[in-house]
Design a protein around this nucleic acid. Structure first.
Lengths: 159, 159
DNA sequence: GAAGATTGAAGGCTCAATCTTC
DNA sequence: GAAGATTGAGCCTTCAATCTTC
């Protein structure tokens, strides 16, 4: 955060409105997606993201560390989730032959079937909660805003 | 979700871009806020939201059920968090004299001091992660988009 | 020694079941 | 009987150690 200067830096009305509305989305959209996926497919949103990521990779295979980046999760969290998915027979794990430090995760046929079965319902929910309520123009605005925020959220460089 | 019609309903490129960017914000902004508050103030984002809500209520007091609505949390979750806050001496609880079914939660002096101490750092983080990266115009767009999404996320009416 | 990955313990969230007051 | 609130069990996440491979 750096030096705490004497700037007033309080939020004005417009900033406050934006902030309160965004927090509300933040607190409610995540749980809503988890609920839909848990109810209809028996997986969490994070588990779905992991399997969907693998399903689009070459050979349905990725290194754990790359998969962690892709799914916005930390490695310990990913490792435990993959352990769970492995137990259900949806993902396999083995050391990378070219460098034993890496672990390769592969989506199994059963895992792929699971993703394929879950996708339509999930997409429908995304459409209902996020895309349908917005105009086409707002969808474009949202994309640019969210991408800008993701830059600000990028790995905190501390050199 | 209703009837699953034969609509193609897949996401086009623009929709997909918006969705992926929003999910990324969703997965990273929440943890980022939790991390800052935990590190600098020793509270979670939800705990902070609850105490900040009470701090602005008349007599720093609210019914548990109203507080649950305000903080976007379900009642069981709020109850457990308030138990924790009560243990630290930041919130007090007592039955509503006018109707014993309700419970009134009150922010103590210590609790107020805690919020006041935590607020500047939290606001600075909100500014750094959300408001500063956006143009003034985008802040307005974000407000309208987020408010629209919150309507779609409203309590699922099933009459 | 450094990078990738895993494990174990502690804390938080979610849901169903329960209790109390009206 | 219904509404508000609490509790308990199970699962998930988080963080700090630890292990392995290079």
């Amino acid at each position: 955060m750096g030096i705490m200067t004497d700037e007033p830096e309080w939020l004005d009305d417009e900033e406050r409105a934006a902030w309160l509305a965004l927090v509300s989305v933040l607190m409610r959209l995540g749980p809503a997606l988890n609920t839909q996926l848990a109810r209809d497919a028996g997986v969490s949103h994070f588990e779905y993201t992991v399997m969907a990521g693998l399903s689009e990779a070459p050979d349905r295979t990725m290194r754990m560390s790359d998969l962690a980046d892709l799914s916005d999760g930390l490695l310990p969290r990913l490792s435990q989730v993959v352990t769970r998915l492995e137990g259900r027979g949806w993902v396999g794990r083995r050391p990378d032959p070219s460098d034993g430090r890496f672990t390769l995760a592969t989506l199994t046929d059963d895992g792929l079937a699971k993703v394929v079965a879950a996708a339509p319902g999930h997409v429908a929910e995304v459409r209902r909660l996020v895309l349908d309520p917005l105009t086409r123009k707002q969808v474009g605005q949202l994309t640019r805003i969210a991408e800008r925020l993701n830059e600000a959220l990028a790995p905190t460089r501390c050199p």
